[in-house]
Design a protein around this nucleic acid. Structure first.
Length: 269
DNA sequence: GACAACCTGACC
DNA sequence: GGTCAGGTTGTC
């Protein structure tokens, strides 16, 4: 489900709604969603949430006890706020209760994970330490240098979180369409000018998607359970066989790096 | 690189 | 029955 814009939407929602709240209770429904040691109930009761932060596609929930809860939603994870005492949805694995509300973590496929780490050690966690620069923060020069050195399809390089963090299958396809670059094109063989354009297109697509509160293709919902609207603006993702909005050619679907890749064979080279 | 693995559900 | 799905990791 979530790539950078969806995770950013959730983090902003949570910061607006529950930063500063005190934890009143925890319900550990599915212990296996915890990657490491499960925090004892006593260590979390009465602890305050300082703020939420996004790192790549990870959600960091910084707490007043010098610890941080890290959440990765993978494909079908959801983080939502609910009224108190309502029956949790199917596949809900963790509930954190506050005065007046509950934070629910659910995940149909259970690929997602939750981790509890000391705040000063967050950056040392293996899954965080390996992340490349954030897709919205990376400079054009750094972007070009990184991409130029990869001898693989541009799409594979963009999906690699150790190169750039935050892009996933939807937004790589959309950004490559905006930049007129074929996803299978070797990264090292793309000109500096076109990489500059791609860097700009990535920023534009991500910003627009954040403004639209993310893409809801099947599972994504924001912090209050509502769908985003950027799926209505997809130009190629999920449009196999439909007409390109620019030239009318049928959108093609190929597999790159094991992922469905959608592109216009006429507009993208 | 390609592929299987981790899971459940939707759709043909 | 088979295929596919916003992600990542580990294996040949």
């Amino acid at each position: 489900m979530p790539e950078l814009p969806e995770v950013e939407t959730i983090v902003r929602d949570m910061n607006g709604e529950i930063s500063g709240s005190r934890i009143e209770n925890i319900e550990y429904i599915t212990p296996s969603v915890w990657r490491g040691k499960i925090p004892g109930r006593k260590s979390l009761i009465a602890v305050r949430i300082i703020e939420f932060q996004r790192l790549g596609k990870h959600i960091l929930m910084h707490l007043s006890n010098n610890h941080t809860i890290v959440i990765h939603l993978k494909m079908t994870g959801r983080l939502t706020l609910q009224g108190p005492g309502l029956k949790p949805a199917r596949h809900t694995h963790l509930i954190i209760e506050f005065n007046g509300g509950e934070l629910h973590f659910s995940d149909i496929r259970r690929f997602g994970f939750i981790d509890y780490v000391k705040t000063p050690e967050v950056m040392d966690a293996r899954y965080i330490a390996c992340l490349g620069s954030d897709a919205l923060k990376i400079s054009a020069n750094e972007f070009i240098a990184l991409i130029k050195s990869r001898n693989r399809p541009i799409k594979a390089a963009l999906l690699d979180q150790t190169v750039i963090a935050g892009l996933g299958n939807i937004y790589t396809d959309e950004a490559l369409f905006q930049a007129n670059i074929k996803p299978s094109r070797k990264a090292s063989k793309i000109s500096q000018t076109r990489l500059m354009a791609l860097h700009r297109c990535i920023r534009i697509v991500l910003r627009r998607a954040i403004s639209a509160r993310g893409s809801s293709v099947s599972d994504f919902v924001d912090g209050s359970g509502k769908k985003g609207t950027y799926q209505n603006h997809h130009k190629v993702y999920g449009r196999t066989g439909e007409m390109c909005f620019n030239c009318g050619t049928n959108i093609k679907r190929i597999i790159i790096a094991g992922r469905s890749s959608h592109y216009c064979p006429r507009c993208q080279r």
